[in-house]
Structure formats: C-alpha cells, structure tokens
Design a protein around this nucleic acid. Structure first.
Lengths: 218, 218
DNA sequence: GTCTATAACGGGATAGAC
DNA sequence: GTCTATCCCGTTATAGAC
C-alpha cells in the first residue's frame, strides 16, 4: 500500500488501471496522475509504454509460472513412468492463477484479470510479451498433458489445452455475461472455484478420450 | 466483395480491421483509408465511432442469434416435457457461430473473431452494446440449460455456461497460444471443430452433474 | 450525399534545468 | 533521480463548399 519508491508506485498504478480498463485505452498520463509522479519518470524507469506493460506483467506472472512448474515437477517425480493423473495436471496449471484471483490473497483478485486482458489483447507487441512470459510453461504442460492423455493425438491435446485456458481466462476476465437481473454469483471461495473448473475441464478432456476421435455426439 | 454503397464499404472495412486488430486500436482513419471513402462519410452514416462499432457487430450477430433461438425453439417443441438433451442445447448455441468462423462460408472465419474481441474488450460502451446484442439469447439459454441439467443449482449452470462461452470465445479469438515451433493445427473442417467443442463442453457439464456438487477431484 | 480542410484534443516521448 | 515545459504526432469530429 505504502510503497516508497517511485518505480513501485508506477507499477502499482499501472497494474490497477491496466486491469480495470485494458492496455490500449489506459494512457501513461492516467497512470502518472494516479501514481502522483511526474511525466518523465515512466520513461526514465521503463523506457516506453511497452516496457512498462512488460514489467507489470512479468512481476505478477513470474511467481505463478514458477509455482506451476514446481507443481508439475513434483508430479513428474511422483510418477516417473506411465500416464500422469489428469486432474492433478489440470490443477497444477489452474490453481496458482485462480487462487490469486478468487482468493482474498493479493490485491483483490486483480492478478488474473490483468493476465486475461493481456492474453486477449490483439496488439502485436503484447502478443510477443505474452509469448515470452508463457512460452516455456505451455511447452512443459503440453508434454505433460500428452502423458496424461496418452491415447490422444498431439493436435487434440493442443485444442484441449486451448479450451482449458479459454475457460479459465474468460471466467476471470469477463465481468458478467448473464441474463438481465441475474447477476453472477459471488466469486469468493477460491477452493470451490478451482475444483469447479478442474472438474469441468477434466470431464471435457475425458469425454474426448472416450470418444472415437471422430464426432459421435451421442 | 464489390459493394456499391459507401455505407457497406465502410462496414466491410471496419469489420475486417476490427477483427484483425481490435476496436480501441483501429482508428477511423485506417478504416476510411481501407474503404477508399472520405473522412466525413463515417460520421455522416454512423454518427461516431461507437455507432459504427455497434452497426458492425449487430449486422453479423443478429442472424446468428436468430439461428440460435430457432434451433432452441425447435428443440423445445420436440421436448415439451422433461429434460432437454444436453448436447443438442450446446450445439444449438455453438454451431452457428463456429460454422461461421471455421467454415469457408463467410468472409474467411472473420465473424467469431470479431465477436470474441468485442466480448473480451473492457471498455464500458462496448460492454453495453454486447449486453444489448446477447442479453436475450443468454436469458433463453440459461433456462434451457437449467432444463438440460435439472439436478444443478442455477448458480452452477451459470458458471458452466460461462466456461462454455469462454472456451468458444478463446478458441476463436486468440491466435496461437502454444509452445514454440508447434503452431496450432489447421482450423478448417468446421464440423470437426463443432463436435470437438460440443463433446468437450458436454463432458465437462456432465462431470459436474455426476459430482456431488463439491470437489471430489479423485 | 460527397468531399476538403481544419479545428480541438489527448497521446507518447524528450530536452534540459535542478 | 526528479521535475517542468514542450514538441510532434495521430485521433475524433465538424464546418462548409460542392
């Protein structure tokens, strides 16, 4: 809350505004005003807007990705041979992020919304940053999911991961996409939310395993 | 391809650029240049940028939502009592949109990316437009899913719909979110893609039905 | 309805004193 | 490292001739 350094004040304000309003819309001037610093400080510390964006994203993403890889490595150590347990792989990927969003832990569930916006953003430069941040984790989990779903082709695994990430990102990003008068329920209770999504994704992936690989939709 | 009226030329160019680069980033000037019209024409026909965005979105969304409701009504007519078949409800929601995206039908799978961007966009005005466009369909499908999953609480149904829409939107919006060197597979064959997603979503929803409502993650 | 010119504004970035 | 003042550009929107 009470950061002393200018750099941290900028990072905090930028994070807040990016998460609330998106990257393209949020201007440096707005950040500067919110942080209570002067115009040139952003360029001094981060070079340009893109640099600030990258700094904001990596600051939060790095620990999450570290946790993901730690969980995954523990999992691989416990299962050196044979297929990996599917739910555990899914949870290794989802839990760190969702807990930060739904739990009362960090800045009020601000993390995942930030990441969701970044992933959904179309701009080229942002996509490069995202690739740099998440590339390795995706590679690692891609092979892990292949081990958890040994009967599926790599192509299918890719799509299933895509669906999983989509469900997570959307859940966390889009505020309410519901009928009028029926607001989304409370989003506390991160444990419940994690198990809900893990259950959903695992069920979806399993049903693809069960299927013949073709349609067979009943 | 060869539209005669200025209005349609603007709509086509705007649609193309919005889908490719997003709404906030795309400037009216870029649209004007691409369409080969003059500066003032946009404001003459659409009032302001927001008006153009709404026109672009509704032009494509209206027929899709109409198809969705038609399918749903047919389904409800065939099943006046008892639970609705889950896969059919899912497909009624997903098929029209996904076919337009993956199929070679319309402007090269441009539709759903456009909608995905719109849904993911954080800006207030855009969110209001989205609400106006999709509100009714969501209400209708919300009760339909409740009928297809009679054992679940409304809250669970809401989340499941959220997951479904997330998987769809993300699949269609985000270009490639994969490990390096391993690009996403070809996205033709809309039939295959529809059945893939329907299968996944149905499996996920079923697994929630099966579950006790609590975790039980194995 | 169509076009040119331009107003009015906010954006990112920088120069240079301190 | 910090701050002020300013440059230069792209943006939306409009005025007004045709």
């Amino acid at each position: 809350m009470t950061d002393t350094t200018t750099k941290d004040k900028i990072l905090d304000s930028a994070e807040k505004l990016f998460a609330a309003n998106g990257f393209a819309v949020t201007s440096l001037r707005a950040i500067i005003k919110d942080a209570g610093v002067n115009t040139a400080s952003v360029h001094y510390h981060f070079g340009c807007k893109e640099g600030l964006v990258e700094a904001v994203l990596t600051r939060r993403a790095a620990p999450v990705n570290l946790e993901r890889l730690e969980r995954l490595e523990r999992l691989e150590r416990d299962h050196p041979n044979g297929p990996l347990p599917l739910e555990a792989v899914i949870e290794a990927f989802l839990a760190s992020a969702l807990q930060r969003h739904f739990g009362p832990t960090q800045n009020g569930g601000l993390f995942a919304r930030l990441m969701g916006r970044a992933i959904a953003e179309p701009e080229e430069k942002l996509r490069a940053i995202i690739q740099k941040i998440f590339g390795e984790v995706l590679t690692r989990f891609s092979t892990a999911f292949k081990r958890a779903l040994p009967d599926l082709a790599q192509e299918e695994v890719h799509w299933l991961m895509h669906f999983m990430i989509g469900a997570m990102v959307f859940t966390v990003t889009v505020p309410k996409m519901q009928a009028e008068g029926e607001p989304l329920p409370e989003r506390r209770d991160s444990e419940r939310m994690v198990s809900r999504l893990v259950e959903f994704v695992a069920g979806g992936m399993r049903s693809t395993v069960t299927g013949t690989g073709q349609g067979g939709r009943r």
